[in-house]
Design a protein around this nucleic acid. Structure first.
Lengths: 280, 280
DNA sequence: AAGCGTTTGTGAACGCGCGCACAAAGTCGC
DNA sequence: GCGACTTTGTGCGCGCGTTCACAAACGCTT
């Protein structure tokens, strides 16, 4: 395999927006119990942006900034400043009025909220094409995630060492995940096996699943599933591309592409890049 | 490089292909006449769900169903039936009132709208960890996407053959992409190079980008960028997991898990699975 | 042909999230 | 200490998307 620098690094980033995150959907109506333990109730849309803010803050900290205005941080994260302020206010903001936000403090605060303080245990199930790549993905470690187990059912794969970890049979899954909910499972198995494997994971105490298989997973209440669907993303792009081709001339507004202003248009190609390999 | 069986599979079903090659066929229901191609204006949220519907339809077709009710299809796609009907109505629905939808016809219709009729050309930039996996991802081909080029800047990677394609230097990018907008670029390079590489791709005529790097890409108007951020997904799961840990007993409502009803709870583990390797 | 059950398509209400705009709050300069 | 400037925090209105509920449309049976 290609030797790659495991560089990783952070950056800046942001969420283009929303449009269509993954599945998502149905949120429960409120109202169950009586006394509510008092949930700060952070909107989902806000939660989805927190990682971006965190990355932007990391970059700023690395650049030496002590404080940031909502304007600057929003710019770095690619969102509107008002939205950012409102998002932060949901976390109980700690900004100073005439100054801005303390970079380090805000970073710590968001990191705490995202549970980054504790190093989350991640288990990758399905060490095939993608699972293999994920096992070697350095971006996880830098975000507080530690891959503690690789699982597969193929005898040809079991026993191999990937990214420093031995691939184990699914039967040993229970030995690796600790307390129910203490680990996040990454599902990278073929679609037709996804549900069955997911059931096993859940039975073993898994409460958080990141699903790469193009299938709708049925899980009991209390289990959180997020989906990453590569083919769907391409199909969505294809939809817009086709629409663009159909109505070439204009359609500047309407639906479609993410905003994004910048990009001085036709700048010359910035050459000096090397080692463009390691992923994301 | 891990030898993996390239098993794949996934869907199949009706042959998407048919007559009209690229260029938008005259599919539009109304408007034969004169001017405006008249954009039916399909909501973004709907577009994002079309791939799911398409998959569900593929499965149904394979299972032999001729027609489906909105109820059944919605169930298979994991959404509400009302939402599904409204979504389909945006495409100019072709359902029959007392019966439901013709599976094959609806499949063809959605596939057309997604541009699946024409086989989209996909270019992968950055053949590192993830790029390598994506190059071997068979799920693309089955959705009408053909990987026509692999690019990188690392001399150690250039020249290698991955998934039957030779990795070429970025300089040759222009030779592979055809008409502007005719290809979709998949960005799997380190975050710090993403913007620079993206600029080059756009300059070469790329109009659709799927970005795996955790960075905000600035692109000119008319360029569509979608982002897949693995670490963010984990962080969002971690947020919910932490919240759950904080208020253990309940919180069945609140934000969180995707809907999904089913899962008979604690079914015994379905054993007979083998070859759980190849990815998604 | 008429009635009945089924299922679509959609009008309308609801709720969430976004953006605007502004007052409160704090800093800096004098 | 006071005024002017800066920046946060948020109340309000708007638009999109979801959900409900129902009338119209269709097949099937009689």
């Amino acid at each position: 395999m290609p030797g790659l620098t495991a560089v990783d690094e952070d950056d800046v980033s942001s969420a283009p927006r929303d449009g269509a995150p993954t599945a998502d959907g149905a949120d429960r109506p409120p109202a169950p119990g009586t006394a509510v333990p008092e949930a700060p109730a952070v909107p989902e849309a806000t939660v989805a942006r927190l990682p971006q803010y965190l990355r932007a803050l990391s970059a700023l900290a690395e650049a030496g900034s002590r404080t940031v205005s909502s304007e600057a941080l929003a710019e770095a994260a690619g969102v509107g400043s008002a939205k950012l302020r409102k998002d932060l206010s949901h976390l109980g903001s700690y900004g100073t009025r005439g100054v801005g936000y303390d970079v380090e403090q805000l970073h710590r605060h968001i990191a705490d909220r995202l549970g980054q303080a504790a190093s989350w245990r991640v288990v990758i199930v399905g060490v095939g094409n993608l699972g293999h790549a994920l096992a070697g993905y350095s971006g996880f470690a830098s975000r507080g995630f530690t891959v503690v187990g690789l699982f597969d059912d193929d005898p040809a794969v079991i026993g191999r060492v990937v990214g420093g970890l031995r691939v184990r049979p699914l039967e040993e899954f229970g030995e690796v995940v600790g307390e129910p909910g203490s680990a996040i499972a990454v599902l990278a198995v073929p679609a037709r096996h996804a549900q069955a494997v997911c059931d096993r994971l859940v039975a073993a105490g898994t409460r958080s699943v990141l699903n790469f298989a193009p299938t709708v997973l049925r899980v009991p209440d209390g289990v959180d599933v997020r989906k990453v669907d590569l083919a769907s993303e391409l199909q969505i792009l294809a939809f817009h591309a086709q629409r663009r081709a159909a109505a070439p001339a204009h359609r500047p507004s309407a639906a479609g592409p993410r905003g994004a202003t910048g990009a001085p248009a036709g700048p010359l190609l910035p050459h000096a890049l090397h080692r463009v390999e390691e992923v994301v």
